[in-house]
Design a protein around this nucleic acid. Sequence first.
DNA 1: TAGATTGTTAATCGATTAACAATC
DNA 2: TAGATTGTTAATCGATTAACAATC
Lengths: 238, 238
Amino acid sequence: MPGSAPQPVPELPADPDLAEISGAPTKQIPPAAVARLTIYLRALTSLMGDGVERVSSESLAEASGVSSATLRKDLSHVGSYGTRGVGYEVQYLSRHITAALGLTHDWKVAIVGAGNLGKALARYGGFESRGFDVVAIFDADPMVVGNEVGWLRVSHVSDLETVVRRTGANMAVLALPAAVAQDVCDRVIAAGVNSVLSFAPVMLQVPDGVNLRKVDMATELQILAYHAQRAQAPGQTA
Amino acid sequence: MPGSAPQPVPELPADPDLAEISGAPTKQIPPAAVARLTIYLRALTSLMGDGVERVSSESLAEASGVSSATLRKDLSHVGSYGTRGVGYEVQYLSRHITAALGLTHDWKVAIVGAGNLGKALARYGGFESRGFDVVAIFDADPMVVGNEVGWLRVSHVSDLETVVRRTGANMAVLALPAAVAQDVCDRVIAAGVNSVLSFAPVMLQVPDGVNLRKVDMATELQILAYHAQRAQAPGQTA
DNA sequence: TAGATTGTTAATCGATTAACAATC
DNA sequence: TAGATTGTTAATCGATTAACAATC
């Protein structure tokens, strides 16, 4: 049985400019700040595309939909990469946020489930462009196994352990029915993956040390429904 | 120009048991609690499926992955529907959470974008089963327009205003490229929709009174990357 | 030097947790 | 009455905001 497989540790980049960050144990960044840093990164990438070289906290905050106070506070967790009276070098800041988020590592993603959602994810350009490499996709349906999806061929889920190890996948995305989610989740973890993103609408149990995030599309609509109902509530008579 | 279209207000149900909640202006529920209430609802639905009639805060909390203190605090925002010393009636509690979240309303969803993601969403059973009715799906590609997706045919996005009004859609899901997201978002809002769920990786601007939520799959992986990198950081030498 | 903008500090606000009185 | 479990209160914790001293 494959209890504790060797977790493939991605190698660090040799860029000396980032050494003190990617190597050293930086302080913990608050969860809320981590989520927003990914948004700043997207805004910075967009600015780079427009050839912008410098940006103030005020305008980067506006582009990201937060207050400049929040932005500066968040950046302070990453380090001091701005210049007072001037602003931030777009490239320089972008590189440091990237490093702080661990995106210089070599992330290899296995997608389990080759239905519409799995295929959508496999072909989604946003992954590749942000340093995530989709290295495998699985399905349980023999009719689907062998099909081409993007650059890949669909493997049978019974080969999950073998293929995960061969490809060195270190992240898994679960795009499959709720009923089989826990079972598959256990298997990818046993195969050495310790970061899982699940789209299945169930509570998954994972051991300590495994990172699990969930996206539930029905939940999102339900939250919208709550706010919409409040907004247009006719009974505001009190 | 279609500035302020008549927003279709979903009718209230005639269930007298829920009248005081669906009709009256209940207090605001904190955002964090709203998000979790949807999770409790899922757990309760699952319990009902198993024929369970009563549940304690302790076991419902466990099934939902939160502490019982958090659960009881969250439920207290909805009302007092438990019995001390006994627990909660599964059906009764479920109905009241449903009402508090506005899920007894008649929500009609238009999906814009019939690529893999749009198709995945249109066919996703979790919507129908939770009171969301997908009433239209759009695409800009003439090759895709007219195709069957689930029960629907794909409409051309140029007919967006017409079809949204005809179907009475009051929610929109954007499953389309970042480049066109803002434009389409403006149009669905102009057509009278005031709740939008976007999967496009861009910051969307919406007017006051419009509810916007975003799901960004690359962001989710980036957050996982941050935690994974910390967990296996080799440089914990300090 | 004068103007601009960062990084940080302190104050406010909201969310979570623990404990327990109320009550079935 | 004794045991169980809710609903609420008070304490803790974390996140956001505002203000400003540091400094380019």
